[in-house]
């Protein structure tokens, strides 16, 4: 009769360290197409923020324009939100982050918003190593304008009308690594078991974390001949580093089966645990990461998982030596120290 989500929730929903259930992290009912991969990404963000016990009001979600960029409406409705101009989310999030370094920043973008109109913005926010999690919901198609091939569509991939894409697709993970991102992963909206720990790790990472998420468009790009359909992706996935995320508080017990697992300690003390998969992928080797991505591409494989991480990298605040407090918490004296101090500064340039 109508389309409403009940207020009732499972009475045994787990509560996190803040005493909150997942409900506190939800948003209103999605109006994206039924089956859109973006909703699965939203659900994973909800679960990750809940499990990490991040207070919902300490999160800022920012986006540009597109299906991907309207997705933040449907998660974290108690967080700060900013829906910016097309492709300009990186500028807004940079400004916000510079003003208040204490919030957790999630940028939600799409393949058009990032790799087409926002490419210049994207390149520079990576280069700045802004402390944020940048997500691209990548479906290879412009859904809001009825299904034109986008800049990340693979060469030869068919549109819904059957035309092959004549141009090479932009590979965002390669770009992110080359431009200096310190946490780069690729995942698939249809595999939450892989996606969830990556989002949690990306949120915990200090610096620029980037996850390219293949997120099928059920309406325009989920047909045979598309290289971003549910079926195609499932058939062509190769996993790089398989990652578990171990939060700070959990005691680390290394069982015999885990003895060969490799741990990477993040800035906040949480741990990325790499399962031994036999393919000897080392996500701390930037050169190898780029080679592996390229090799997979040549073999028509989609390399997913944690591709590259530098857990010791500095973020923009550390590089610039900014104040360690949010500007809104500084008093008038600190923000406006008076003409005497200005005089001293001016003198130093004379």
């Amino acid at each position: 009769m109508s389309f409403l989500k009940s207020k009732f929730r499972h009475p045994k929903l787990p509560r996190n360290d803040l005493g909150l259930t997942q409900q506190a992290y939800e948003g209103p009912l999605s109006t994206l197409c039924a089956g859109c991969g973006h909703d699965a990404i939203g659900a994973s963000i909800i679960q990750a923020c809940h499990e990490l016990s991040i207070p919902p009001h300490r999160i800022a979600k920012l986006s540009g324009i597109g299906c991907s960029s309207k997705a933040p409406t449907y998660f974290l409705d108690k967080a700060h939100g900013f829906n910016s101009v097309h492709g300009r989310m990186p500028s807004i999030v940079t400004g916000a982050n510079m003003a208040n370094r204490d919030l957790v920043y999630i940028g939600m973008s799409g393949d058009g918003d990032t790799s087409a109109i926002g490419m210049g913005q994207f390149a520079h926010v990576v280069r700045r190593r802004l402390n944020m999690l940048y997500l691209v919901a990548n479906n290879g198609v412009y859904g809001l304008t009825k299904g034109q091939t986008s800049a990340t569509a693979d060469e030869g991939s068919l549109s819904k009308q059957g035309q092959a894409n004549p141009l090479e697709g932009i590979d965002l993970v390669t770009m992110a690594i080359q431009l200096g991102a310190t946490f780069v992963a690729r995942s698939f909206s249809g595999d939450k078991r892989e996606l969830l720990p990556l989002i949690k790790a990306g949120l915990s990472h200090n610096g620029f974390a980037f996850i390219d998420i293949v997120s099928p468009c059920v309406t325009f790009n989920n047909h045979a001949g598309s290289t971003k359909s549910y079926d195609y992706v499932r058939d062509h996935v190769t996993t790089g580093a398989v990652t578990d995320f171990v939060p700070v508080e959990e005691e680390i017990i290394v069982s015999s089966s885990d003895s060969e697992a490799q741990d990477i300690c993040l800035h906040d003390g949480s741990i990325l645990r790499l399962q031994k998969t036999g393919n000897e992928y080392d996500p701390q080797d930037r050169q190898q990461a780029l080679a592996a991505i390229e090799q997979s591409r040549q073999q028509d494989r989609i390399l997913t998982g944690l591709l590259y991480v530098d857990p010791a990298a500095q973020d923009l605040h550390e590089v610039l030596g900014t104040t360690d407090k949010p500007l809104n918490s500084l008093g008038e004296r600190a923000l406006c120290p008076g003409s005497d101090v200005l005089e001293v500064i001016n003198d130093s340039f004379r």
């Binding site: 499972h10 859109c36 991969g37 699965a40 909206s189 939450k192 059920v218």
Partner: peptide
């Protein structure tokens, strides 16, 4: 089923 997970995400009772 194409295993998109939409039902899993929307279910108010996590059934």
């Amino acid at each position: 089923c194409i295993e998109c997970g939409a039902c899993e995400d929307i279910c108010p009772m996590d059934c």
